[in-house]
Computed example of a mutant assay.
Amino acid sequence: MRRMCLGIPGEVVELSAERADLATVEVVGVRRVVNIGLLGPGEIGTGDWVLVHVGFAMSKIDEAEAAATLEMLRGLGQAYTDELVALADSDIT
């Protein structure tokens, strides 16, 4: 069975004081450290929304886009649930 890989919107809740390429992001109540190094320096701040995939923030999105994407992902059922489980189990620190 092939597993679908999704990008999930998350809100940046904290920037790492020790590493400029790391931030804590909250996705549906789950907080994880993600790498924001693929985005431009200073582009991301607390309260911003990012699209997270395999521990990396892939792009910055606005809150409306984040809400619409989360709603669409919920409609995917098991693929969405699987991605949330993978996120909860991940740790890049």
Score class of each variant (00 low, 15 high):
residue 1 M to N: 05
residue 1 M to T: 10
residue 1 M to P: 07
residue 2 R to L: 05
residue 3 R to Y: 03
residue 4 M to Q: 13
residue 5 C to N: 13
residue 5 C to V: 13
residue 6 L to E: 04
residue 7 G to A: 07
residue 7 G to V: 01
residue 7 G to T: 07
residue 9 P to D: 00
residue 9 P to T: 00
residue 10 G to M: 04
residue 10 G to K: 00
residue 10 G to W: 00
residue 11 E to I: 08
residue 11 E to S: 10
residue 12 V to G: 01
residue 12 V to N: 00
residue 14 E to F: 05
residue 15 L to T: 02
residue 15 L to Q: 02
residue 16 S to N: 10
residue 17 A to S: 13
residue 18 E to H: 12
residue 18 E to G: 12
residue 19 R to H: 09
residue 19 R to V: 06
residue 20 A to G: 05
residue 20 A to T: 07
residue 22 L to R: 10
residue 24 T to N: 08
residue 24 T to V: 14
residue 24 T to H: 12
residue 25 V to I: 10
residue 25 V to Y: 01
residue 27 V to F: 03
residue 27 V to S: 04
residue 28 V to I: 15
residue 29 G to K: 07
residue 29 G to F: 12
residue 29 G to C: 12
residue 29 G to A: 09
residue 30 V to E: 12
residue 30 V to M: 11
residue 31 R to W: 14
residue 32 R to F: 11
residue 33 V to A: 09
residue 34 V to E: 06
residue 35 N to E: 15
residue 37 G to C: 10
residue 38 L to F: 11
residue 38 L to W: 13
residue 41 P to A: 08
residue 41 P to G: 02
residue 41 P to H: 01
residue 42 G to A: 06
residue 44 I to K: 01
residue 44 I to Y: 03
residue 44 I to M: 07
residue 45 G to C: 12
residue 45 G to H: 12
residue 45 G to F: 12
residue 47 G to F: 12
residue 47 G to V: 09
residue 48 D to E: 09
residue 48 D to H: 04
residue 49 W to S: 03
residue 49 W to A: 02
residue 51 L to V: 01
residue 51 L to Q: 07
residue 52 V to Q: 01
residue 52 V to S: 02
residue 53 H to I: 06
residue 54 V to K: 13
residue 54 V to E: 14
residue 54 V to Y: 14
residue 57 A to L: 08
residue 57 A to W: 01
residue 57 A to C: 06
residue 59 S to F: 00
residue 60 K to F: 06
residue 61 I to M: 09
residue 61 I to Q: 03
residue 62 D to Q: 12
residue 62 D to P: 09
residue 63 E to M: 05
residue 63 E to A: 14
residue 66 A to S: 04
residue 66 A to R: 01
residue 66 A to G: 01
residue 67 A to I: 05
residue 67 A to C: 06
residue 68 A to Q: 13
residue 69 T to D: 02
residue 70 L to H: 05
residue 70 L to V: 03
residue 72 M to K: 04
residue 73 L to W: 06
residue 73 L to K: 06
residue 73 L to I: 04
residue 74 R to N: 15
residue 74 R to H: 11
residue 74 R to M: 11
residue 75 G to S: 11
residue 75 G to T: 03
residue 76 L to V: 07
residue 76 L to E: 11
residue 77 G to L: 13
residue 78 Q to V: 11
residue 78 Q to T: 07
residue 78 Q to L: 14
residue 80 Y to D: 06
residue 81 T to G: 14
residue 82 D to K: 00
residue 82 D to T: 07
residue 82 D to L: 04
residue 82 D to F: 01
residue 84 L to V: 11
residue 84 L to I: 14
residue 84 L to A: 09
residue 84 L to R: 05
residue 85 V to R: 14
residue 85 V to Y: 13
residue 86 A to P: 02
residue 86 A to D: 13
residue 87 L to R: 03
residue 87 L to V: 10
residue 87 L to A: 08
residue 88 A to N: 09
residue 88 A to C: 04
residue 88 A to S: 15
residue 89 D to Q: 15
residue 91 D to G: 15
residue 92 I to Q: 08
residue 92 I to N: 07
residue 92 I to P: 03
residue 93 T to I: 11
